[in-house]
Design a protein around this nucleic acid. Structure first.
Lengths: 109, 109
DNA sequence: GAAATTACTCTATCTGTCAAAGTAATTTTC
DNA sequence: GAAAATTACTTTGACAGATAGAGTAATTTC
């Protein structure tokens, strides 16, 4: 299980990416992250909904109530045009961040 | 300039790595990070000294006063055996973290 | 109809980062 | 040789993001 401090700062991008692929609701995203990472990372509920609030406030995503089918009411999120641009930027930043951290993490032992 | 949120959680490793190479003092580490990253990342002084405190408390590094030669008094840090083991672990965690984040950052556009 | 699952929300707390301000020694400049 | 610049470290208080914990509510399973 990866410590959340190592993922911190990338959470917005991860969630934005999943919403970019298709409209999604919170619980689904939570399960999807666990699935794709093979449980190497799990987002905590409280964190997830804090991210939604942040992204919606910045107008990177929008929400709408979905149909109730298998449990509680679902709140779906879709990415905005601004959100798509932001995601592309974040991916570039990630590449640079990787390079920089690798400077200090490689060439050992 | 990389946002500190993206580096957050890796600072301990970066500083530990530099002290692993050789004993170093704070100001030197600060300059070395700017140099190696080509100013793509700069650590803030307050942050640096907070990291030292954290690492020393965990007994991953030890300190000793050095000679005064070109300015104020220098406090040098050396890595402990525990620190070396920790660093190796952190490097493995970094590899895994990269893989996990890449899952969400690749295959776009 | 009780228990489990799906699904979202809110509050309080913790941790890491950092701005700001301060102390002090040495070196450079004029 | 006094002032300014640089080297070097420390402390305090504030802020943002992550999360434990508790709660609400609908649907599904047994």
């Amino acid at each position: 299980m990866i410590r959340s401090d190592l993922i911190r700062g990338h959470l917005d991008s991860i969630i934005l990416r999943l919403i970019f692929e298709q409209d999604r609701y919170g619980y689904e995203i939570s399960k999807e992250i666990s699935l794709r990472t093979d449980n190497r990372f799990q987002i905590k509920e409280a964190t997830l909904y804090a991210v939604f609030q942040r992204l919606e406030k910045k107008e990177l995503i929008e929400s709408y109530m979905g149909s109730v089918s298998q449990g509680g009411k679902r709140k779906y999120y879709r990415i905005t045009t601004l959100g798509k641009a932001y995601l592309r930027e974040m991916i570039e930043e990630w590449k640079e961040t990787k390079e920089v951290i690798d400077l200090f993490m490689e060439g050992l032992q």
